[in-house]
Design a protein around this nucleic acid. Structure first.
Length: 536
RNA sequence: GGCGCCGUAGCCAAACGGCUAAGGCAGCGGAUUGCAAAUCCGCGAUUUCCCGGUUCGAAUCCGGGCGGCGCCUCCA
C-alpha cells in the first residue's frame, strides 16, 4: 500500500488525478507526478544563508516554488511548502565580525530583509521557515545516529560523513565517487577521504558554539536541511528544490545523510531552477573569465552589480528589488522556463513591464464596463470546479480552449512561459469581444451582453492566480489616485478640455493634452469620456 | 581536465517526431479617433548556429563541428 507514515486511506477519499509531469534531476527525465501520499505534497526548498541583504537572484527559487505550490493546490493537492533559513555559517561569522555584531543579530536583520522581499513578491504560500539554530538538538541527535550506524566519524572535535560508506553517493549529481576521489589530492587533514564532508565543525575561540558530545561547535552546512526537512515533512517527501548550483555538493550530501540515516529515499522528485545572471545594458552577458572564477563569490557578485550600473556600484544588484515593480519581476521570472538560466537586464524588465500594462488596462476597462472590480472577482476553488461547458457562445468556446492550453502548459513541468503566452491570447480575445460588442461607454448594458466577458475574465483571473499574478491592484503612484488635490485638478482640466472639444476647439484640447504629456500624464479619449493615467 | 546545459525572427521566448514554428517587446501597414492614446486586424523565421545521419516525416532523435554558459570551491 502506502509508505509508513502515510495515514490516508486511498479508497475513502477523492484524490486529484492529474497529468502533471516534472523533470527530475535524479533520473534526468520528465516523470509523471505521483505524490508519496495520495492527495498530499511536501516541498522543501533550500533557502538563503542570511548574511547579506537579499538580491534579485534569491527571489527566483521562492517565486518558482510559490507558483508550483499554487498550481498544485489548484489541482486539488494539499501542499506543505518549507523554506529553510541558514542562520549559522562561516560567512555569517565573518560578517558579524566585520560589523562588530553578534551572528544572531546579523541573521535576524537579514532574515527580516528576506521576509520583506518575499512579501513584496507576493510569496505568501510558505508554511514553514525553519531556522538551523532552532534545530541544534535535532542536528546533534541526527549526527549521533549517523555515527552509531557507522556512516560518520569524529576527528578532533569535527564530525565527518564517510562517503565511501554510501555506495549510491553521486547518484543525484551523476558523478562517480571513484572519479571524485581520484582528483581529490592528498590534503586530507582531519578527514579520512577528501570527499568526506563536515556534519559538525569544532569552534575556534570566540566563535558561536553549542555543546555537543564532540565538544563545542556548530553544524555543517548540509546537515541542517536533512534534519529540518525530516522534522516537518518526514523521512521521505515529494519535492526537493533549489538552485542548479546546489546539486553538488549540497543536495548530494543531503541525500547521503538522510538516506543513510533513514534507509529510504529522501525526496522523490528533485527540481532545480536555473540561475539568474546579470547582463549589462548593452546586452553583453555577465560571463566570467578564468581569472574571475578564482575570486570569491562576494567579489563576483559585486562585479556583476557593477556591470548593471557602474555609477551606482555594488548596491545596484540588490537595489533591483527595490527599483522595479515586484509584479514585473515575478512576471519576468515566470516568462521563461524555470530550468533555464535567466539573463537579467534593465531593458528586459522594462519590456516585461510594458506587457503587464496591457493587463492593467484591461482590468480597468473591465471595471468601467461591468462595474465589477477584476481583483475582487470570485474564482473557482480548483481545476475541477473551474471546468465548464461553453455551449454555443463563440467567446466562451475560445476561452475554454485557451484554458485547456494553459493547463496543458503548466502540466508539462510547470511551463510558465508557455502559460503566460496563453494569458496574452486570452487578453486579446476579451478585448476584441469588448470592441466588437461596443461595450465601452454603452448605456444600460444587459447581463446577457456582458456575461461572456465576465465569465472570460473570471477564467483569466483563475489562471493568473495559479501563477500568483494580479492578486491585488498594482501600487498606485501617489499622485494618481490618493492625492486629492491632483485628482480634483485633473477632473477640472478634463472637464474644460471636454468643453473645448465639443466646441471643436481642437487647438486648445491638443494643447492641454500635449502639456500634460510633458509632465508624464497621458490622456485617453474614449466613447464613455476621457480618462487619465500617469506613467510610472 | 571531468560532468552537464544551451544556441528558435532586431530582442525575449514557447514548441518534449507529424496540422499555417505560440506569445511578448520593438517595427511597419490598416480599422477606430477631430488628431492622438488605448484596442482590434494584418505583415515579419520558405525555416529553428553549421555539416552529416536515422525516419514516410526532425527545431525536436543520433554523430561531428562552431559558439555561449554552468558545476567540479562558498552560492538560490
Amino acid at each position: 500500500m502506502f509508505p509508513s507514515g502515510c495515514r490516508v486511506l486511498a479508497t475513502s477519499l477523492f484524490f486529484p488525478t492529474t497529468m502533471i509531469r516534472l523533470y527530475n534531476t535524479l533520473s534526468k527525465t520528465k516523470e509523471n507526478f505521483e505524490p508519496i501520499c495520495p492527495g498530499k505534497v511536501g516541498i522543501y526548498l533550500c533557502g538563503p544563508t542570511v548574511y547579506k541583504p537579499s538580491h534579485i537572484g534569491h527571489m527566483v527559487g521562492p517565486i518558482i516554488f510559490d507558483t508550483i505550490k499554487r498550481y498544485l493546490v489548484h489541482n486539488g493537492f494539499e501542499v506543505t511548502l518549507v523554506i529553510n533559513i541558514t542562520d549559522v555559517d562561516d560567512k555569517l561569522i565573518a560578517e558579524a565580525n566585520a560589523r562588530g555584531m553578534t551572528m544572531k543579530a546579523v541573521a535576524e536583520e537579514m532574515t527580516a530583509d528576506y521576509m520583506r522581499n518575499l512579501e513584496a513578491m507576493g510569496i505568501d504560500s510558505v508554511d514553514y521557515f525553519p531556522k538551523a539554530t532552532d534545530n541544534i538538538h535535532n542536528i546533534i541527535t541526527f549526527v549521533q545516529d549517523l555515527i552509531g550506524k557507522g556512516f560518520a566519524y569524529e576527528s578532533k572535535g569535527d564530525v565527518y560523513f564517510d562517503v565511501q560508506k554510501f555506495p549510491e553517493y553521486g547518484k543525484l549529481s551523476h558523478r562517480s565517487l571513484e572519479q571524485m576521489l581520484g582528483e581529490g589530492g592528498s590534503t586530507v587533514d582531519r578527514k579520512q577521504s577528501s570527499c568526506d564532508f563536515a556534519l559538525w565543525k569544532s569552534a575556534k575561540p570566540g566563535e558561536p558554539a553549542w555543546d555537543s558530545p564532540w565538544g563545542k561547535g556548530r553544524p555543517g552546512w548540509h546537515i541542517e536541511c536533512s534534519v529540518m526537512s525530516r522534522e516537518i515533512l518526514g523521512e521521505s517527501f515529494d519535492i526537493h528544490g533549489g538552485g542548479l548550483d546546489l546539486v553538488f555538493p549540497h543536495h548530494e550530501n543531503e541525500v547521503a545523510q538522510s538516506e543513510c540515516r533513514h534507509g529510504k529515499i529522501m525526496a522523490k522528485y528533485w527540481l532545480h531552477n536555473g540561475l539568474m545572471q546579470a547582463s549589462s545594458e548593452t546586452g553583453k552577458v555577465g560571463g566570467r573569465s578564468k581569472e574571475e572564477r578564482s575570486q570569491t563569490a562576494e567579489d563576483r557578485e559585486e562585479q556583476e552589480a557593477g556591470k548593471i550600473s557602474k555609477s551606482k556600484g555594488a548596491s545596484a544588484f540588490r537595489d533591483m528589488l527595490k527599483q522595479f515593480d515586484p509584479e514585473a519581476i515575478r512576471f519576468f521570472i515566470l516568462s521563461s522556463h524555470y530550468r533555464r538560466p535567466i539573463d537579467f537586464s534593465l531593458e528586459r524588465i522594462e519590456q516585461v513591464a510594458t506587457g503587464l500594462e496591457a493587463f492593467y488596462r484591461f482590468f480597468k476597462r473591465y471595471e468601467r464596463i461591468t462595474g465589477d472590480i477584476f481583483y475582487a472577482t470570485a474564482t473557482p476553488k480548483n481545476r475541477a470546479e473551474g471546468a465548464f461547458e461553453p455551449g454555443e457562445d463563440p467567446l466562451l468556446k475560445q476561452v475554454r480552449e485557451f484554458r485547456e492550453k494553459f493547463l496543458e502548459a503548466m502540466d508539462d513541468d510547470f511551463n510558465t512561459g508557455g502559460a503566460i503566452g496563453v494569458l496574452f491570447d486570452l487578453l486579446r480575445i476579451l478585448n476584441k469581444y469588448a470592441d466588437d460588442q461596443k461595450l465601452d461607454g454603452a448605456k444600460d448594458l444587459s447581463p446577457e451582453a456582458t456575461w461572456p466577458l465576465v465569465h472570460g475574465a473570471t477564467v483569466l483571473r483563475e489562471l493568473c492566480l495559479t501563477l500568483g499574478l494580479f492578486r491585488r491592484p498594482p501600487v498606485e503612484k501617489p499622485a494618481e489616485q490618493s492625492d486629492e488635490l491632483v485628482h480634483h485638478l485633473m477632473r477640472l482640466i478634463i472637464e474644460l478640455r471636454a468643453g473645448a472639444r465639443q466646441n471643436k476647439d481642437f487647438a486648445t484640447a491638443d494643447k492641454i493634452r500635449n502639456a500634460l504629456n510633458e509632465v508624464g500624464i497621458t490622456i485617453e479619449d474614449r466613447p464613455g469620456g476621457s480618462d487619465w493615467s500617469r506613467k510610472a
